[in-house]
């Protein structure tokens, strides 16, 4: 018996799932593009109250670490690491791509045990030109997919080839809020796909199952860290104009 609280604020929702041995005891899921910084802590309180569980009863904290919105990822991870510190419990990360995979009916809720029948491509909007992609090969569970990457849609096929996975040329399942753009690129490349049919965002039930599977597999001993897949936007400043002036160098 293990009681795990899982947080997800990395995408366009605020989600809290309390699972006992992988089964959802109480959960909340509210779609929102922003506002997770206000919504998360009261939602944790509401979920725990609904289950009648005290904070100290938790055995571990899980959190989605991305890929996703940088600010959202940090909201969840900061809260998870704060809880872990205050309760002296381990905290560990789940990827958003495996959480979406686990939420698909084809994969079965709790897809770490049930296998996907066809290769499942998870596509998440970056709100930039590229997409976050991960592939769960046929015959694997949601947790057995490739590491997520940031990839422009037109390079998706080249990336699929690089994964070395088999069977995706015969047809793919697609899930995630980037399905439309990823699907258009696949169609343009002559590939067949259909929607996996589940939610575009991680579902509480799936989070509870994945978290338990991760705990059983033995979470890393280090705190959860964001999966940014992208360096910060920053450019070094130009030197002042006089530095570039001809005849410079008197004191440099």
């Amino acid at each position: 018996m293990s009681l795990i609280l899982t947080l997800d604020t990395a995408l366009d929702a605020c989600t809290v799932a309390l699972g006992r041995s992988g089964v959802l005891v109480a959960g909340r899921h509210e779609p929102m593009r922003r506002g997770q910084a206000e919504a998360l802590a009261p939602m944790i309180d509401a979920v725990m109250a609904e289950a009648g569980a005290r904070p100290a009863a938790l055995d571990a904290i899980a959190v989605t670490v991305g890929p996703g919105a940088f600010t959202g990822m940090r909201i969840g991870i900061a809260a998870a690491r704060g809880l872990a510190l205050a309760l002296d419990r381990p905290a560990f990360g789940l990827t958003t791509t495996e959480a979406i995979a686990a939420s698909q009916p084809e994969a079965g809720v709790g897809a770490t045990s049930s296998e996907v029948g066809a290769p499942l491509l998870i596509a998440i909007e970056t709100k930039r030109q590229d997409l976050y992609l991960a592939l769960v090969p046929a015959g694997r569970g949601a947790g057995g997919g490739s590491a997520p990457v940031a990839c422009p849609p037109e390079e998706a096929v080249a990336w699929l080839e690089k994964t070395g996975a088999a069977g995706w040329r015969k047809g793919l399942l697609l899930a995630g809020d980037g399905t439309a753009r990823a699907g258009a690129a696949l169609t343009a490349a002559g590939l067949h796909w259909r929607p996996a049919g589940g939610p575009a965002l991680p579902a509480p039930e799936a989070l509870a199952t994945l978290a338990e599977a991760a705990r059983v597999a033995g979470p890393p001993g280090t705190p959860p860290e964001p999966l940014y897949l992208r360096p910060p936007d920053a450019t070094p400043p130009r030197p002042p104009a006089w530095r570039a002036a001809p005849g410079d160098g008197r004191d440099s």
Partner: peptide, 20 residues
């Protein structure tokens, strides 16, 4: 800088909630 402020605020809220 709001990204940093959120990290501190959420860490604090989590600790406050966990310890009552």
């Amino acid at each position: 800088l709001i990204g940093g402020v959120m990290v501190g605020a959420l860490t604090a809220k989590a600790i406050a909630w966990a310890r009552g």
